[in-house]
């Protein structure tokens, strides 16, 4: 990780203005570092070229592990380790194993996905991430550029882009 990031960012008052700005940026091939919004803005992902998340594939794998664990353990216990007849049913009573198998499938998938989510996002209790502006979680929509090692004319290009596309404030910060 680089120790310092010099960031130039603009705050927009409305998500539509920001989305239009990103369209302009894409046309001019400007390299956006990140976009911060107070809520998930629809249509933002394709504009930023974000790949589809593979979280659900991971979820499927976790779920399958849960299924196999539950069904396998119950089968092993009731046919090998300690077979007991309950209610005149066979040792290997598949219908009776279904509920627990289902529950553990859901449990494994959910816990696995939530843990994966926080891990890949780098979020955890106690993590302090730099915040560009306190109002980003309120009503401002932020487009940020990384400006490390850029000449002042290039930085000017970015800041004039931000101003011309309707940013209400443009500032820079070292994070």
């Amino acid at each position: 990780m680089s120790a310092h990031k010099e960031v130039l960012y603009g705050l927009y008052d409305d998500e539509e203005i920001m989305l239009d700005a990103i369209r302009v940026a894409n046309k001019q091939h400007l390299d956006i570092m990140d976009v911060f919004t107070p809520f998930p803005v629809h249509g933002l992902d394709p504009l930023l070229g974000l790949e589809e998340s593979r979280l659900h594939i991971a979820g499927f794998v976790y779920g399958a592990i849960g299924t196999l664990t539950a069904f396998g353990v119950m089968t092993w216990i009731f046919t090998r380790d300690w077979p007991v007849i309950f209610g005149g049913k066979p040792y290997w009573s598949v219908p009776a194993f279904i509920p627990i198998t289902f529950e553990l499938t859901v449990l494994f998938a959910s816990i696995g996905m939530v843990v994966s989510f926080y891990t890949v996002c780098g979020l955890a209790p106690g993590v302090v991430n730099p915040v560009l502006d306190d109002r980003i979680t309120d009503d401002k929509f932020c487009i940020a550029f990384q400006t490390n090692g850029l000449s002042s004319s290039e930085i000017d290009k970015y800041s004039s882009f931000l101003k011309s596309t309707g940013a209400s404030e443009v500032s820079s910060k070292v994070i």
Binding site: G87, G88, K89, P95, A96, I98
Partner: peptide, 11 residues
């Protein structure tokens, strides 16, 4: 499943 299992279980 609910219909089958309950009838299977109570027997």
């Amino acid at each position: 499943f609910s219909q089958f299992m309950l009838i299977w279980y109570a027997n």
